[in-house]
Design a protein around this nucleic acid. Structure first.
Lengths: 364, 364
DNA sequence: GCAACTATTGAAAGCGCTTTCAAGAAAACG
DNA sequence: CGTTTTCTTGAAAGCGCTTTCAATAGTTGC
């Protein structure tokens, strides 16, 4: 085993040597000297200036490649004023809570930004001062704001600083800002409508935290559908909380303990549904028969709604798509695309599977 | 509503103005001029050099605060050669798969690094060249490597480059490197032993991907316990795969379809257990009675093992702790702490709850 | 054939900070 | 009281890159 380990390392080392070019050149200056050119010309060649002769450019590019030259990023940043990096603040709502959706979002965002040679810089503390500092200090060229609240301080601050940012979601403000959002209102309108059409009249809503904009939008959709059917949903049916398995369980429990308990649930995330399902089972009820469920599905890579015991009817909008799109949008914004062109809302699919059916008639 | 939105914005704007000091000073030069001092002295004062007079320092600090001065990070990086940033490469095993544990880990890491004034820079592409480039380019001072394989290329490369890095986990190599790991082998040894002591003789193992080091370690623990009991586990009992709900389901299914089916499962992650549980239920079996389960619990903030229908017996090691510890370790490493002092393995708790019991005797 | 362009390159001035080196003032020493 | 030390500060030289501006050579126009 020890031998094997050693040989593997030797293998990788050799492989690595073959990638690594012999000569390595540290900086522009030495590359320029090596080529017998000025730093200026070499820099221009590397940065695709039209004023540089084709042959020269070719030579420079070749040498740079051969000598494995990489421009120092700090120097470049200092000279250009650009950071080629986008900031993103970890949404740690509570101290402990981390949204699992965020991993998928981040992965897609980072991957797409890499195609624009932009990095992602993470920060933990979510205060206006953090944003200001990052902006002023030149660490990032722009921000992506996640999980906006209806009235989000961060947007006020960044607007005031006149610093580029794209919001993942929307908020209520008259300030102009770029955003990418899914049609949460429409999605939950459709979902609610489907349930109402099936004959459900008491529909429990297990929503995200009340101050988050998307939760508000979803509630709006829920309400609009009810209004169309002339039904006024009881307040006891509407729950707002963090979207964890645990809270899914608790709120399902509360809903099922009601005297006149709902015949259908509308859940804001897959994990919440896992929790709700646990409670439903405990009570000996059957999903899709005793109780219908529609959940919002962010297309998490590690937890798929089609794989639930009872395949779930969902409103589906892959959060990775949001990451990918927002990456492009924020880069465009930094490069000068006007805000008005960076406001996008995409529709949400309603995928009907077996967790929804007409309510059972037999009720005591 | 529109009015309310407007007023909120006005509120935030006002609040913001009160934070924001009137005068703002762009750079060291103007701050120095404002103070009637040289840039050198001001810089020294700001960076806590002992050679600067106490009174002068106080004056400088006060002025810097009042004028809201923030040193430009690129300039500072260029001058010092430090980036004050740690790189981390997103572990996208497949194109689509994102490990939900990673969000928790990242959050803790980022938060702790912030206390050292270090940022986290994310990258998507996981090739040796990526590491090399980031290192040479000066974007980061060090790396954190996640999910190492037994023979991990990245470690060979970074070692060769002589670039600081800390591994979250371990690997098989004779190269010296810093790491933080939990005692996976011990944890699964303990868990397996518990099951064997309870009388189980056929224990299904639903492990992580076979090339990942932690999966190997866990398998080792599983095997060691069996050896002690003089039992040779059948190969059919040992499964390796990605740790998603879906695969948990599938492998549980495969295991339960065996002629002589296992009476206990050992699962490598909470999400896998969710899937396994689904299959177990479908077959009308009862966890903790028909089948015992022990799962490894990374302490995910949004999915807690104590909240399963049948509270799960677990080997528990919060992944956030790893993030926090590694943050400190990598900073220490960059600052010169020798590698030998940066190798840590922490024990794992075995928490017994109700998902484990002696196997049922009645078997056909 | 000379003025007016065009194409291409280089010199040099930053970008905003840190840090070496030298210098002046104050304090300590003998 | 002259000399050595200690404190404190400033001037200036980078860090490695980009970019303005000037300069040269080569073209074109009339």
């Amino acid at each position: 085993m020890a031998w094997k380990a050693l040989s593997m390392i030797a293998y990788f080392a050799a492989k690595w040597d073959s990638w690594r070019k012999e000569d390595v050149v540290a900086n522009l200056k030495s590359l320029a000297e090596h080529l017998g050119l000025s730093q200026a010309t070499v820099s221009r060649a590397l940065n695709n200036y039209s004023t540089v002769n084709q042959e020269t450019r070719a030579k420079v590019l070749e040498a740079a490649k051969k000598l494995n030259y990489r421009p120092n990023s700090s120097a470049r940043r200092l000279a250009t004023g650009r950071a080629d990096a986008i900031g993103i603040v970890l949404p740690h709502q509570d101290d402990l809570l981390v949204d699992p959706h965020f991993a998928d979002f981040l992965a897609a965002l980072t991957k797409k930004l890499a195609t624009y040679d932009n990095d992602v810089v993470l920060t933990a503390t979510d205060t206006p001062q953090t944003y200001q500092r990052f902006a002023e200090i030149g660490k990032v060229d722009g921000f992506v704001i996640s999980a906006p609240k209806a009235h989000d301080e961060r947007i006020a601050v960044l607007s005031k600083l006149n610093f580029p940012f794209i919001v993942h979601g929307r908020c209520e403000t008259d300030l102009p800002y770029g955003f990418f959002d899914i049609d949460n209102e429409g999605a939950f309108y459709d979902a609610t409508k489907l349930l109402l059409q099936l004959g459900h009249t008491r529909i429990g809503l297990i929503n995200g935290a009340a101050d988050l904009m998307f939760a508000k939008q979803r509630l709006d959709g829920y309400n609009r559908a009810h209004k169309e059917f002339g039904i006024k949903p009881a307040l006891e049916l509407i729950h707002h909380d963090h979207m964890t398995e645990e809270y899914g369980y608790r709120h399902a429990q509360a809903l099922l303990d009601l005297d006149d308990r709902p015949t259908a649930f509308l859940c804001s995330s897959t994990l919440v549904t896992v929790g709700a399902q646990r409670r439903i089972r405990e009570m000996g009820l059957e999903i899709g028969k005793d109780i219908s469920i529609i959940t919002h599905d962010d297309g998490l890579s590690s937890l798929k709604t089609e794989n639930f015991s009872v395949a779930l009817t969902v409103t589906r909008a892959p959060i990775r798509d949001a990451g990918t799109q927002i990456a492009k949008m924020v880069v465009d914004l930094v490069r000068g695309t006007p805000i008005e062109q960076l406001q996008k809302v995409v529709p949400v699919d309603l995928i009907v599977r077996t967790s929804t059916s007409a309510p059972r008639r037999s009720r005591s």
